[in-house]
Design a protein around this nucleic acid. Structure first.
Length: 283
DNA sequence: ACGAGTACCTGGCAGC
DNA sequence: TGCTGCCAGGTACTCG
């Protein structure tokens, strides 16, 4: 299957790129916003029961996932990359990944509810129409947090050494750095003036330093604006409020960059995804 | 180990 | 208006 096939015909016969409504999906800033909301509302409360719906995630959680949680106190809500970690007394944890369309919502109701967690009078629902989300009790191996000191230009440069894959695919590789997806990889590469298709090993030390700084800058700004919400099937926080970071996006979901130049979609699909960049500003 | 390709899923859209 | 089929995305899998 060639997704690009329909757009590679001769000019004139090529249909205009479909202006698919861009959506913002949960990446680090969105998950962090969810984390704060959940912790604020539920920290210290005791788990009083929950259920996994019959039609659940694409990757079914273990049926016993919630066994033994009843009566345990939610001590902390943590985030690692795009994963949310609910830590209970007795060293029990519940890990959640929102996937593409996953939302955690207080109260409410939805035909796409996959998981319900009750804390006394409070109810937290995991709603996920596309069923790409998941729930478990462990995390995969993940790279450093991009906002931690462990993610620095030296580390990034070393991680890219010898890698022929496009830099954008490497930025979105959760084992290299955790929490970056299509939106913030696109934004960080624009900010750093680097084309998404450039091979990882072709970045200079200076470019790695610039990219590292751009990643931090873009993510910090998005966290402070409580994530990005563009389009309908987009991210909302647990109180179903949109974020404001979309107002700062310079490339993602736009036809002209914040630089004023028309943007281009890379001919090659990177990491299975199409990629947009400014051919004038990104080298 | 690495890189490319693909399955998973469904709302929303273009094109007929 | 209604139908069909494409497309988006993150992760985990396979294959070479």
């Amino acid at each position: 299957m060639s997704r690009a096939g329909s757009r590679l015909g001769p000019p004139g016969s090529t249909p205009a790129p479909r202006a698919a409504e861009p959506n913002t999906l949960p990446e680090l800033p969105e998950v962090e916003t969810v984390r704060r909301a959940v912790e604020r509302r539920l920290k210290g409360r005791r788990f009083s029961g929950g259920s996994i719906s019959a039609v659940t995630f694409n990757r079914r959680p273990s049926p016993g996932l919630l066994n033994g949680l009843s009566g345990l106190r939610l001590e902390k809500v943590l985030r690692r990359g795009k994963y949310l970690i609910m830590r209970f007394s007795g060293n029990r944890v519940l890990t959640l990944h929102l996937g593409m369309s996953g939302r955690l919502v207080f109260g409410g109701a939805s035909p796409h509810t996959r998981l319900i967690l009750r804390f006394g009078s409070e109810t937290l629902r995991f709603i996920d129409p596309r069923r790409f989300g998941r729930a478990g009790c462990a995390l995969p191996r993940l790279g450093p947090e991009p906002l931690d000191k462990g993610f620095n230009s030296r580390y990034l440069y070393a991680s890219l050494r010898g890698r022929r894959a496009p830099i954008k695919a490497l930025l979105m590789d959760q084992r290299i750095v955790a929490g970056i997806g299509n939106i913030y990889a696109t934004e960080a590469l624009f900010e750093a003036g680097i084309r998404p298709g450039r091979a990882g090993r072709r970045l200079s030390r200076w470019q790695a330093r610039r990219l590292c700084a751009s990643v931090k800058k873009v993510l910090r700004a998005a966290v402070s604006l409580r994530g990005a919400t563009l389009g309908d099937a987009s991210y909302l926080d647990p109180l179903e409020r949109p974020g404001k970071a979309q107002t700062r996006l310079k490339v993602y979901g736009r036809t002209a960059g914040a630089c004023g130049h028309p943007l281009r979609d890379s001919r090659k699909v990177i990491g299975g995804r199409r990629s947009r960049y400014c051919p004038k500003c990104q080298k």
